[in-house]
Design a protein around this nucleic acid. Structure first.
Lengths: 340, 340
DNA sequence: ATCCGACTAGACAACGTTGTCTCAGTGTAT
DNA sequence: ATACACTGAGACAACGTTGTCTAGTCGGAT
C-alpha cells in the first residue's frame, strides 16, 4: 500500500490521513476522535469508518504535548521484582494506579545510587505524574527541584536522605524492640541475630531496637552473637551453624528479613533444634513451615497502596506538609505447631 | 518566581527558557543537551549551567514526536501482579527490557476480554515499541492491524485466538500426560483432579493430558473424580475433603495449579493422609512443605525472558514467520521427605 | 588582497495533535 | 427584507523538540 516508510511497516496513519480519506478537515477528525458532540452524525460516522479502515489510533504523546494534559503515568522505582517484598508493593501500587486510570512504569534502581538517580531522571523526562521510590541509598537532595517543578515523589520503606518528602515506612525499631522484649520475658538472654548489611537503614533500625530491649532489661549485650551481611538463605544457614557451635550458643534467633529466616528455619529443622526463632517479614506459606516460629508481620501491600494514595493526593494538587506514614508490626505465630 | 502557571507549580522550563537564560539560540541548547560535539566548549558550559540552574529536563514526548524515534517502552499485560506466577514473568520481562534500555509499562487486563482489548489499545496509543500479553480470553484478530502497523506482540502462557502471532507457552498436555503415566505406573488407577475453570485453555490442555494417559494405559476414566472451578487454596481443601469421602476415594491427586496444591497439601497434612500428590507449577518454599509431593516444574521466568527476547527481535526489525516456543515440564520431588 | 573550506550558530519548518478564532449557513424575530 | 443568534466546520497557530538549511567567522593557501 503505502511504501513511503523506511522500514518494513507502512507509516502509521495520522489524523490528516483519516481526514483525507473521509473528505473532511483534520480538526473534524480530532473532534470525532475526542467525542465532541458538535459534529454532524453522518460526518462523524464517515470519520469513524475511515479511522477504523486505516487502523488509526491517536498519538497519545502528541495529544498530551499539545493539550498540556498529564501523561496519566506514574513511575515506581524498586530494586527487584522477583523479590516477594517488592512484588507485593508493586501489586499494591498497580491496584491504586489502575483505580486512577493511570499506567504504571516499573523501573529498576540498578547497582548504585547513581544508576538510581539516572532512572529517576529518565522518568522525569517522560513527565510521569509522580514517582514512588524505594530508595537504595545515596543523597536525594537533587530531587528537590523535580518535586518543586511538579513531579511529586513518595518514598517507600526508607526515608529519603537530604530531602524532606512524603514516605511510608515500617516501625522497624519498635517492632524489633518489642519482639526482643518478648523473647527476654520468656527467659532468653542470649539471642543470635542475623541481618543483612548494616548499610541499610532498615537493618540498622532493627538492630537498634534489639539493643534497646537489652538495655531496657538491664541485660549485657554480646556482639559475637550478631551475624551481619547475611544476604540470603544459604548465608543464613551458615550463620546459624556458626552460632550453634559457640561454647555458649544462643537460645533464640532473631532474623532481620524473610530470606534469612528461610535459611535459618531449614537448618534448625534439619538439626531438629528447638531454639526459638523470631523473624522480620511474613511470607507466603510461612504457616506451613515444618517447625513453629514467629514473624514480625506488617502490611507489606500497604506500603504500595498507602504510598500510591498519598502520591495521588499530591498529583491532584492537594497541598500539605510532608507526611511520614509509619506502619506498625505485629508478632504472629507461624509454622506448624504440632509437627513431629 | 514564575507565576504564570495555573497551579501551584511554576511552569517547567523548556529549551527556549534555557536558551534565553544562557543567551544562545534554542537550537544550540538542543545540541548541548544531545551531546552534539560541534558546540564551543565555553558556550556548552554556559548552557549546561543554565539548564542545571533552571532544573531543565528535556521533554521526552516532544523529542520522540519530532525525531520519530521510538518510545523506548514496551508494555506487559497481565492479570495480577500479586500472583507469584505473573510476578515471575514480569520480573523476567523487566530484566530483558532493562538490558535493552527500555522502560516497562505493566498493565492489568481487567475483568473481561473487552477491558483487555481496551488496555492493549491504550498502550498502542502510547506507541509502545511492542507488547507482551498474557491473554485472558476473547478474540484477538482485531490486533492484526496494530501488528502490521509496527507494534509487535508476543503472547505468553496462552496462544492468541484468531491471530497468528508469536507466543511462548508451556507443554501442558505432555506434562500432565507424562506425570499421570508415572502415577499409573506406580499403581494408581483412581486419581482425583483439581482444576480451575475449564474455560482456560491451559487447564483444558492439562485435563486432556490426563485423559490421554488413562486412554494409553487402557484404564477407565471416572469423571466424578474431577473437581472444576477450584480457584484457590480454600476451594481446594473442600474439594480434597469431598473426594476423600467418596465410597471409592482416589489414591492420588493431581492439582492443576500451585494455588490448589497449597490447599490440597494443607488438608492432606492435617489429616495425615499419605495419598500421592502431583501438582502443576513449582512455588517458593515447596521443598519445605510438611509432606512429600511432586511438582510439574517449568521455567516460569523463561516465559518472560524468552518472550521479551523474541519481542526485541521483532522490534529490531527482524522478519520471520510467527514462532511458538514450547517450554517443557519436569516432574520434581518437593516437600520434606522424612517427616513423621 | 582574495578565495576557499572548515567550523559554528541561528532561522525555519516540521512531528501529530488540540485550542482559538473565523466564517458560512440556517432559522427566527423584527 | 434585515438583523440576530445559533450551529457546525475549517483555518491557523501552538505544544517542545529536532532535521535541514543558511549565514557568519576564522585560518590558511593562493
Amino acid at each position: 500500500m503505502d511504501a513511503t516508510a523506511s522500514g518494513a511497516f507502512p507509516r502509521r496513519p495520522t489524523m490528516a490521513d483519516v481526514a483525507r480519506s473521509a473528505g473532511v478537515s483534520l480538526k473534524t477528525v480530532s473532534r470525532v476522535i475526542n467525542g465532541v458532540s458538535t459534529v454532524d452524525v453522518a460526518m462523524a460516522a464517515r470519520v469513524r469508518d475511515a479511522a477504523g479502515q486505516l487502523g488509526f489510533r491517536a498519538n497519545f504523546a502528541a495529544s498530551t504535548l499539545r493539550s498540556g494534559s498529564s501523561s496519566a503515568t506514574i513511575g515506581l522505582l524498586i530494586k527487584d521484582l522477583s523479590n516477594e517484598f517488592y512484588a507485593t508493593i508493586a501489586s499494591g501500587v498497580a491496584e491504586v494506579a489502575r483505580a486512577h486510570q493511570t499506567q504504571l512504569i516499573t523501573a529498576h534502581s540498578g547497582e548504585n545510587a547513581e544508576d538510581e538517580m539516572e532512572a529517576i531522571f529518565d522518568l522525569c523526562r517522560r513527565r510521569v505524574d509522580g514517582l514512588l521510590i524505594v530508595p537504595t541509598g545515596g543523597n536525594h537532595s537533587a530531587l528537590r527541584s523535580e518535586i518543586d517543578l511538579g513531579i511529586p515523589m513518595v518514598f517507600l520503606d526508607r526515608n529519603p536522605v537530604g530531602l524532606d518528602a512524603d514516605s511510608v515506612v515500617i516501625d522497624n525499631y519498635a517492632g524489633a524492640r518489642d519482639a526482643t522484649l518478648t523473647l527476654i520475658s520468656e527467659g532468653h538472654t542470649r539471642i543470635g541475630v542475623l541481618v543483612d548489611t548494616l548499610n541499610m537503614p532498615t537493618m540498622r533500625q532493627r538492630v537498634e531496637g534489639i539493643h534497646a530491649a537489652f538495655a531496657a532489661a538491664g541485660l549485657p549485650w554480646d556482639d559475637t552473637l550478631v551475624s551481619t551481611n547475611v544476604r540470603g538463605p544459604a548465608e543464613a544457614s551458615i550463620a546459624v551453624e556458626r552460632l550453634l557451635s559457640l561454647s555458649r550458643p544462643p537460645t533464640a534467633f532473631f532474623c532481620g528479613n524473610n530470606r534469612s529466616s528461610i535459611g535459618a528455619l531449614r537448618t534448625l529443622w534439619e538439626q531438629r533444634r528447638t531454639e526459638a526463632l523470631v523473624a522480620f517479614d511474613d511470607f507466603q506459606l510461612a504457616e506451613l513451615m515444618p517447625r513453629p516460629f514467629r514473624v514480625l508481620r506488617y502490611d507489606n501491600r500497604a506500603l504500595g497502596t498507602l504510598g500510591a494514595q498519598l502520591l495521588f493526593r499530591r498529583i491532584s494538587g492537594e497541598i500539605f506538609d510532608p507526611v511520614t506514614v509509619v506502619l506498625s508490626t505485629e508478632l504472629c505465630p507461624r509454622g506448624i505447631q504440632n509437627f513431629q
